[in-house]
Write a protein that binds this DNA or RNA. Sequence first.
RNA 1: GCCCCCGUCGUCUAGCCAGGUUAGGACACCGCCCUUUCAAGGCGGCGGCAUGGGUUCAAGUCCCGUCGGGGGCGCCA
Length: 471
Amino acid sequence: MVKVRFAPSPTGHLHVGGARTALFNWLFARKNSGKFVLRIEDTDLQRSSQEMSFEILNALRWLRLEWDEGPFYQSKRLHLYRRMAERLVEEGKAYYCYCTKEEIEERRKASGKGRAWKYDRRCLHLTEEERKKFEEEARPKAIRFLVPEGMTEFEDLILGKVSVKNQDIEDFVLLKSDGYPTYHLSVVVDDHLMKITHVIRGADHIYNTPKQILLYKALGWEPPLFAHLPLILGPDRKKLSKRHGETSVLAFKQKGITSLAMVNFLAQLSWSPGEDRDFYTMEELVERFSLEKVKKSNPVFDLDKLAWLNSRIISSMKPEDLWEEVLPFLEEKIRKRAEERKEWVFRVLNLIKERSRDLREVGEKLERYLVRDFQYKEDALKKHWKPGAKEGLRRLLEEYRALEPFNAQTAESSLRNLAEEMGVKAASLIHPLRVALLGERVSPPIFDVVEVLGKDEVLLRIERALEELPD
RNA sequence: GCCCCCGUCGUCUAGCCAGGUUAGGACACCGCCCUUUCAAGGCGGCGGCAUGGGUUCAAGUCCCGUCGGGGGCGCCA
């Protein structure tokens, strides 16, 4: 059975790259009727935090990437990693290293090789006396993996064959001197114990894979299959990071991006179902997903496309669903008022969803329908509140007062008749009416607004405008 | 510095594996139509196979070089 995992380290927000990795794992699991495991890699004491773990969980829930097992915290499984590291030492496949970080740094510098320098295996060749001395001094010791000679290869499901000369790999640390495992150890132990079949992760891990395969072999375990996803780049073609602006997925949530837009956007970075469609439901994405269709090249993160997807998804949503999504963007007072007349709110949502880019906008617009004492917007007054506007509205108010039945059709013909009577264009009544009803420069078709607000509200809003707005 | 990967409109991509297309779609941008406004929608425009060579009757598709971009080389994950 297929089993995959998402294994973030809680050292920061869940950023778009991480979310994309989680999404692809989730899609792969669902597509293959497998399991999706969530594991928190909190073995870096300094940088990990509980709050970040919770936030990551939250972000995954928002994206609707529900996990089948976990979350497992590596900080609670330390004994497992230690035992395996000790075992490797006993078997001569790893060794204790007493070198301190400073000593290593010194030797690295002295070698003149800079980054090309590899650990010199000094502690592998320690004499019995030297070892005893270090032990008596109670020097902290780490455990290093003894990289064997040869060549390590694997078939990446996305990139194809990857091979590395073992001589390019240094004797990496398995267990830090503080007793905590490094990434390589914990990830291999856990992936094996959790019976992970496919490791799908970012391409920045590509050269960790040979190290980990070596570890699997040393422990006598069968390695899983690997798939490395291309990295998401910023507009300047550099690896996406904070300098490109907001990269935390929850920040997008706060900006009013729907999770479906986020998911579609992420899914279609370096992957395409090859159809002439703009977006899909989660189920449709699952149906179409396949690792073979993942490209090797790095995609660029394009905010415009996300924003557009979001606006299209919002306007395609059923008002009931849109309502749920807008809730967090409404003030308590407004929310309560809306709850009392849900059916009516749905009608309003149907009117405004078409021209909203994000959920914040939907919330702001909805509010104008729910409260009468909204602010008249400056740009609206500037553009549509011209001399003579008031006189027209005054006459329109009289017409509307007498109008029965009062609906979009009757309101429109009434207004048009009045315009003709006054010898003005209908627009010169329509625009002031828009300002009076909603205080905005733009709105849905105004007679639809008139109908949804209802006669009483329309009259009250016109009266308010006549009272408060200048001539 | 050393090792590796990638390269189709500005961006996301289809086409490449199994050579023969007027190189298709979408975002963005620009026009026009619709229209009371703004969107949406419709129509049209702009714009691309990084580059040089080779193989071939034929190359975006196969091979090599160059250039450009990315990644990795931690007691971080």
